[in-house]
């Protein structure tokens, strides 16, 4: 693919995206409009994340792509391949070794460092969208900090279900100012949003970029008497025995038997290599 520029996008476009990223970092949680380009993968499949990664990558970077926490899901493979071809950067599956991580729907379990950047793919950047479909109105609500409606939604959840029934894309308030959609990560990941690494969010179809700088306060919205809870399946991983990681539930036979495995494949692999075992690997190890 040598006919394309490094990381596919032309330099002018990258500069435009970098300006949006810098603005996003300067105003944490604020959605910066940007002239999203058509990418050779469909809108809704990570075009925002891909553009942010393309504008952020340097030839020295080591790139990791995960989808649902895993490096080997088809869309992750496809995006990794895209950058291998267009940027020729080194890629890795090890969170530890990556300098730039593009993700869809998960934050890795391993704590990220100050010298790392994580790029989220965002389908709908507007946390108020399903309460108010009009862009003109939601932008006004953000600018005037009118977030009462967001709490009305949570209030209605509790009054109907006895609990806040948002389990992913759980809204947060960033740096005491903007309410932000953290992308469809499970709410289990929300506490990790306060981290040492730079977090960039790209929504290609919706033409928005936003960011959370390192060490920024990120609070999940809740009520004092119904505090936010980061939940996960109440099991250890059946492969590595981890009790602190987010789990995928897998149906293993026609009778509907289940097993639970780490959604973060690299985390699980590292633990198994370090000798940890779970329900289904104990016998093998023994």
């Amino acid at each position: 693919m040598s006919e394309y520029n490094f990381a596919y996008l032309d330099e002018q476009t990258k500069r435009m995206i970098r300006r949006a990223i810098l603005k996003g970092l300067a105003v944490p949680g604020y959605q910066v409009p940007f002239a999203s380009r058509e990418m050779p993968m469909p809108y809704g499949w990570g075009t925002g994340g891909v553009q942010v990664s393309a504008a952020t990558l340097t030839p020295d970077d080591t790139f990791k792509v995960i989808d649902q926490g895993a490096d080997d899901t088809t869309n992750a493979v496809s995006i990794r391949k895209f950058f291998e071809n267009t940027a020729g950067v080194e890629t890795t599956e090890e969170t530890e070794k990556a300098s730039l991580i593009q993700t869809r729907h998960r934050i890795p379990e391993a704590k990220l460092r100050e010298d790392q950047i994580i790029v989220y793919q965002v389908p709908i950047p507007e946390p108020l969208r399903f309460l108010e479909p009009r862009e003109t109105e939601t932008r006004k609500m953000h600018s005037l900090e009118e977030y009462g409606l967001m709490h009305v939604k949570l209030y209605e959840d509790i009054s109907q279900h006895g609990a806040i029934s948002t389990s992913y894309a759980y809204p947060v308030k960033v740096s005491g100012r903007y309410v932000m959609d953290p992308s469809p990560i499970p709410k289990f990941d929300n506490p990790k949003l306060e981290m040492d690494a730079i977090q960039l969010f790209g929504a290609g179809r919706e033409q928005r970029i936003y960011a959370v700088p390192p060490h920024t306060k990120v609070v999940s919205l809740d009520f004092e008497d119904y505090p936010f809870e980061a939940t996960k399946a109440d099991h250890p991983c059946d492969l590595c025995g981890a009790e602190d990681s987010y789990l995928d539930e897998v149906i293993t036979d026609d009778a509907g038997s289940r097993m639970f495995v780490c959604s973060d494949t690299d985390y699980c692999r590292c633990r198994r290599e370090a000798g940890h075992t779970g329900r289904m690997t104990k016998d093998v190890a023994a």
Binding site: N75, A169, D248
Partner: peptide, 16 residues
């Protein structure tokens, strides 16, 4: 693109 993206894996959200 957006319509068809719902066939991508969503098992993390669904698990939640």
């Amino acid at each position: 693109g957006f319509l068809e993206h719902i066939k991508l894996p969503h098992y993390v959200d669904f698990q939640s």
